[in-house]
């Protein structure tokens, strides 16, 4: 069964008086529990596509169905509510709230639900143990390493039990070992918890952890050219 069904989307940005096409008639389906990696040169439109899937932006035309919901017709508030329940976000620079502890950062998305404090606590603890950071829950982001911050961000992404996870260069700012840990975690989320994940990455090593590879260039999507990837892997 396909969780993500993208049909014929076009997206352009206005720059001054010009319109710049970033995505040209893209179609893509992603199955439940799949871990898809999106590669491509800088400026090729990877983040743009990811943002459309995550409901952060609207396409010019085409349809995006996620878990049976057509999100291209939702209003801004409708999208916000939909994102809160269905999407987990992981960013390159972790984007934790600096004045909140690890625990509070993870609890943040739950503030938009009707869960009681006790229920929220249970969810946060579960998410914390998933990323093995129970002993750091009272630390503020600045007291954590980059890898630990990204693990907190992953916990924040999964604490609402979303349908899909989107990650934009999640290892882009991490050292090798931390990157490995994060990728291992994402892999687990797919294989053990059945989360569908879309990850944008530059890093072939990261891409190789995914189940599926897609390649985006000049606004056109293709299956990853195997040669390019394996070549990168060897270096």
């Amino acid at each position: 069964m396909n969780v993500i069904e993208i049909t014929d989307i076009v997206k352009s940005y206005r720059r001054g008086s010009q319109r710049i096409r970033v995505l040209e008639h893209i179609s893509l389906t992603i199955a439940n529990g799949e871990f898809l990696s999106l590669m491509g040169p800088s400026g090729s439109g990877k983040s743009t596509l990811l943002n459309l899937i995550a409901g952060l932006d609207q396409a010019d035309s085409g349809s995006i169905r996620i878990g049976g919901t057509e999100i291209s017709t939702l209003s801004e508030t409708g999208l916000a509510a939909w994102r809160a329940g269905r999407v987990g976000f992981i960013f390159q620079f972790y984007n934790l709230i600096p004045v909140l502890t690890a625990y509070e950062n993870i609890e943040l998305p739950l503030m938009l639900t009707s869960l009681s404090k006790k229920a929220r606590h249970a969810h946060v603890i579960t998410a914390l143990s998933l990323v093995s950071l129970q002993d750091r829950m009272d630390h503020y982001p600045r007291q954590l390493s980059g890898g630990q911050q990204q693990r907190v961000a992953i916990a924040r992404a999964v604490v609402t039990d979303p349908t899909i996870l989107v990650a934009d260069e999640p290892t882009g700012d991490l050292d090798r070992q931390s990157a490995e840990d994060v990728l291992e975690l994402m892999d687990q989320l797919c294989t053990q918890l059945g989360k569908t994940s879309v990850m944008v990455t530059h890093d072939p090593r990261a891409a190789s952890r995914a189940h599926t590879l897609k390649y985006l260039e000049k606004g056109v999507l293709s299956d990853a050219p195997q040669a390019a990837v394996s070549e990168c892997l060897q270096t």
Binding site: A54, T77, A81, G85, F91, I97, L112
Partner: peptide, 8 residues
């Protein structure tokens, strides 16, 4: 980030 998470 708040908005991304669904805060209005």
């Amino acid at each position: 980030v708040f908005k991304t998470l669904g805060f209005g």
